[in-house]
Amino acid sequence: MRKPVATFWVNAALLTGAIVTAFPLVWMISVSFMPTGAAGHYPPPMLPSEPTLDNYRQMFAKHSAGRYMFNSAFVATCVTLISLCFNTMAGYAFAKLRFRGREWLFRAMLGALVIPGQVAMIPLFALVKELGLVSSYGGVIVPAMASIFGIFLVRQYALSIPEDLLEAARIDGASEWRIFRSIVVPLLKPILITLGILTFLGTWNDFMWPLIVLSSQKLYTLPVALAGLSREYVQDNELMMAGAVITTVPVLVLFLALQRYYIAGILAGSVKG
């Protein structure tokens, strides 16, 4: 193929792919501004002829979307902060603090990565119930306070911290905790941002466990609430699109703002793993 022709086809394919990929999200936003019933026409309308905020008003006023949004944000923030703290400490120790049983322990943890979380889910429910955490924020937050993947990610990054730096601080008499706080954490900053975003988005989007453990409606996270509403309001497409926008646009914006870190995390987590 001659070069200009090939260039045309490659770029045409890319553009087509982009349109197909972006379309559902763009249409979701467009339909969410249509008045009730406007989307139930053939051919499907592309843009709202009379844009309205009614669906959003209804989502917040009648279906307490604000409450669910708070729940999602609160749970995701708590999980992110606590697990970031625990995973960073453990990841650093696995990389830099030699203690007996370390290699063995680390290998056992890596092996456990193949076990899907759902295997633990049913006994976990019984346990969480024993602890009195069913239908509380704690039921979602507490089991997520540490993750093997997070420890692994931090460890891989922490391996590159120069040993001399830590030794010098030790000779100066700094405690291990002090070294961690004032030398290690600043050095780990890029990977902490990455892990923080991955954790926040993962928790925000999580569905099955919150569905199981949050039985009271006022604690529902956005995905759980939206799944319930979507069964109830099957016909009201415009309202459901507003609900989908409220649920997914916050994480999309967060991703767009910090995508460099997010993609770095995926590459570090899978290629080296």
Binding site: C85, F86, N87, M89, A90, Y92, A93, F94, L97, R98, F99, R100, R102, L105, M109, A112, I115, G117, V119, A120, M121, I122, P123, L124, A126, L127, V142, P143, M145, A146, S147, I148, I151, R170, E176, W177, F180
Partner: peptide, 28 residues
Amino acid sequence: KVARAGWWFVAPALMVLAVFFFIPVLAA
């Protein structure tokens, strides 16, 4: 000292993983 610190550093994460993942998997 370093070894003891190492244990302290991994302890919180390991406790969480043991109680809320490893034991439930076996219990399953």
